[in-house]
Design a protein around this nucleic acid. Structure first.
Lengths: 339, 339
DNA sequence: TTGTAGGCGTTATCAG
DNA sequence: CTGATAACGCCTACAA
């Protein structure tokens, strides 16, 4: 069988298109960039030349003169945590929903010892226009570095230390409040909570929000045990909680993944959900559906939040003097079967 | 409180570094690119100038002359399927493990009606050096388009129609064989299987591989019901299977996610796993750990496969005439508690 | 409205 | 080993 691979297509330049259309490069450039002040006949001639030659503008050349990379980074936490967290798919969907129509590249970077430099360097090199930071680690210097260098950056979630940085977050306290009123509304009397790691701002807000709401609902003291947002930690915390509050009948677990880890423990102890113990999670990640029974939870509008992060970033790219802002989304209660 | 944002750092060019170091741009360029034939004293002078100015080479300019974007695309299936599939985190880990050390960008693109053009266009524009295609849809014309344009591309999994394209896959049939011998070795007599969608090459291979192995182990006929690799379809298929083979005691389910959907159905029907029904899944995705009991499954070395895809792609980028190849990885049996 | 010409920041080819 | 000098492909005043 004779293999006939056609040769790689030669790169067509503005120059050639111009020659074929019988005009100057400048005119072709205008047509390509949709400048209106071009004679209709000439425009058509140029467009014909473009399609017959199969011309595609070279982005590197354009970037060189426009000083725009047309690409932004999405910086995710190190691989261990990333793998298996259904959260990220939604973030990616949200971000690319605004980037894709604009033809902007979404460059994925996972944080690691060398990656911080990488992001900063690429930004300086003009290879990236800005960065969206997810979960940037508690001790991570990257946000401050970018802010100080006046580079476009948006953070997901409130930074743990005050920083002049734009961020997008969900109203964590309000979400915890929804969980509290739902559990109380169900008539539960012995309500406890499994929180996230207390050095995490989101975990803090959920816990204080939950306590505040419970207090205003007449339940002053709430026992809490901290996990670290992983499934395993949910199981461990559940065991401890059963020891500390043997008669609990209501539970707010600060992440769906931890709830997913807690459920088997309850089952093993013979506690029926929701009959004996009502559970409300947080996130509405796909882990909520993986639960049995399906988890009642607090939904974060992750896709919308991610899209907003992208929009905020692009504003900074276009207008470097855009003031920083905090955009806070409202969570909603999703009632399924666990409470 | 007075706000004092320092001004954005001015972009430093090769020119300036050269001026400061008292040499030509060419020499600075050599130093930056690690060309060895540079006098040691001059090199040091240049490096000093570089660090005092905080110089970073402009990648756009470099790309313009080198004709390399230093970026490859990772093309993923449309958003609905992507969200919640723990598979992708592992693919991303694997790919970036080879890209990151080389400073190459990983550009994420999700397939959609317009995305095919996007990938092709960006490749032609010199904005992308190549593409890694995951799950590219059965009817997707993209692989053929790229191959015909002689653009660097690597596919995950055997293409459904013969195509001169490089791909990386797991030995599906061997994997199914591992499942078969494990179940038979456990002494199970009535073994059935839930397969993936039969228009999918991987699903086909797993099913035929399983049947072949079972036959060679003395069990000629195996009842199978097809799912579509989603969790929900696993539950549906399980129901049907219980009707068709009421006394089954062993089960090979062609994806962990489907197994995760099947387990609650078994529990509802009062069948204990693994005592009454032994189950082997496929993938060793995080869904396997989400199962209760934890799932015995066939592990695909996804990270390694993804890394290999990246390597294969880079070979093509560097040497356009690299012949196409198929790299097949061996799966392994991971014994947990379901079988 | 169109064309000319200069420049964006690097790399690469030659001389020297 | 180093330094001019010419690309690389495009955008954009500025001039016609």
């Amino acid at each position: 069988m004779s293999v006939s691979r056609r040769p790689a297509p030669k790169r067509v330049t503005l120059e050639e298109v111009a020659r074929i259309a019988g005009v100057s490069r400048a005119t072709v450039s205008r047509v390509v960039n949709g400048v209106t002040s071009v004679d209709e006949n000439i425009r058509q001639a140029v467009e014909r030349a473009i399609s017959t030659t199969g011309y595609h503008p070279n982005l590197a050349a354009r970037a060189l003169v426009t000083q725009r990379a047309e690409a932004v980074a999405l910086v995710l936490p190190g691989e261990e945590r990333m793998v298996g967290d259904p959260f990220f798919g939604r973030i990616i969907s949200g971000v690319s929903s605004v980037l894709r129509p604009l033809g902007l590249h979404l460059v994925l970077m996972v944080t690691g010892k060398d990656t911080n430099d990488q992001v900063l360097t690429d930004l300086r090199r003009g290879r990236l226009d800005g960065a969206i930071l997810i979960y940037s680690d508690l001790t991570d210097p990257l946000p401050a570095l970018l802010v100080n260098s006046r580079l476009p950056v948006v953070l997901s979630g409130r930074p743990r230390r005050p920083l002049r940085i734009t961020y997008v977050d969900v109203n964590q306290q309000a979400g915890a409040g929804l969980a509290a009123s739902h559990l109380v509304g169900l008539g539960r009397q012995r309500i406890a909570t499994i929180s996230g790691p207390l050095d995490n701002p989101a975990a803090q807000d959920r816990l204080t929000g939950f306590r505040a709401a419970m207090a205003s609902l007449g339940q002053a003291s709430v026992v809490s045990v901290a996990g670290d947002f992983t499934r395993e930690s949910g199981g461990v915390a559940m065991e401890r909680l059963l020891t500390e509050v043997p008669d609990l009948d209501g539970l707010f677990i600060a992440s769906d993944l931890m709830a997913h880890g807690a459920l088997p423990v309850l089952r093993r102890h013979g506690r029926a959900v929701p009959d004996q113990v009502a559970i409300v999670g947080f996130d509405d990640s796909s882990a909520a559906l993986a639960c049995e029974p399906p988890l009642t939870t607090i939904r974060q509008p992750v896709e919308a939040m991610a899209a907003e992060m992208a929009r905020q970033l692009l504003m900074q790219v276009e207008h470097p003097d855009t003031p920083t802002a905090a955009v806070i989304f409202d969570p909603t209660l999703v009632v399924r079967q666990s409470a």
